[in-house]
């Protein structure tokens, strides 16, 4: 499953960033690296983008971007 599939309140662990090029680098620069826990907070009122917590801060990204991040549910 991917990061966009998480429900608000769920936490996942990043398994793999399957994006390539600038997107991949940017995601990793922002702390989305394998092993990092990522918590889904909420979606924007219009449904996209989403807000997550990673490395103790809040990050927003579009669903299309979040779909490139494989996660497993932790809690």
């Amino acid at each position: 499953m991917n990061l966009a599939d998480l429900n608000p309140g769920q936490t996942g662990r990043v398994l793999k960033v399957s994006a390539v090029g600038p997107l991949k680098r940017r995601l990793m620069d922002m702390g989305i690296v394998p092993g990092a826990p990522a918590g889904m907070l909420k979606a924007a009122p219009l449904g996209d983008p989403i807000e997550i917590t990673i490395k103790n801060y809040r990050l927003s990204l579009r669903r299309g971007e979040a779909e490139k991040i494989e996660v497993e549910i932790v809690s």
Binding site: P22, L23, R26, L27, M30, P49, E51, Y57, R58, L59, S60, L61, R62, E65
Partner: peptide
């Protein structure tokens, strides 16, 4: 372009 953006405190 990418959207990936911090929501600062």
């Amino acid at each position: 372009p990418l959207f990936i953006m911090e929501l600062p405190p």
